[in-house]
């Protein structure tokens, strides 16, 4: 059963500004060291960071059925499976919120073109699979 959906778009130019910032805390307040390391290994780090930023925002939107407030930046990590496909890893408050909603799996899809990155998220739970009316 689908418990929530979220979608977001992010301009890599904004991440480029963060990468150029003299304040390392800016990046560290949103991205885990593993996310930064993965994106830094790519030809366009800002674009890959933008995709992960969009994914985090999409997860927050998908979780918005919960009354929990605040930010969840570091509680939502985008990792890559050995085959390369992105996966969402939740911890801390984000994991608590997801558990409260009955989420058993988070699906994420990322894409980007030129400087724009888009992420789509689906929360699954409460049953074996999504059902159609």
């Amino acid at each position: 059963m689908i418990l929530g959906t979220g979608i977001d778009i992010c301009d890599a130019a904004r991440l480029q500004e963060w990468l150029a910032s003299p304040d390392p805390g800016l990046m560290a307040s949103v991205f885990t060291p593993a996310e930064v390391a993965y994106c830094s290994s790519k030809r366009s780090p800002a674009l890959h960071l933008a995709a992960r930023y969009a994914a985090k925002e999409a997860v927050v939107k998908a979780l918005s059925a919960s009354p929990a407030t605040g930010s969840f930046w570091l509680d939502i990590e985008i990792v890559n499976a050995p085959g390369g496909q992105p996966e969402v890893r939740l911890r801390g408050r984000a994991a608590d919120v997801a558990a409260g909603l009955g989420v058993s799996r988070v699906w994420v899809s990322l894409t980007h073109v030129e400087s724009m990155a888009v992420a789509s998220v689906i929360l699954e739970g409460g049953g074996d699979s999504a059902s159609l009316p």
């Binding site: 992010c10 904004r14 304040d23 805390g25 800016l26 307040s29 949103v30 930023y53 407030t69 605040g70 930010s71 969840f72 930046w73 570091l74 509680d75 408050r93």
Partner: peptide
């Protein structure tokens, strides 16, 4: 996005740490 920058400005200028729980 801007909220993150604003949060960092506040943390540096006022030597505080704003927990994610409060950054709503």
């Amino acid at each position: 996005f801007s909220m993150v920058s604003l949060k960092r400005f506040l943390e540096k200028k006022y030597a505080i740490s704003i927990p994610d729980r409060d950054a709503s």
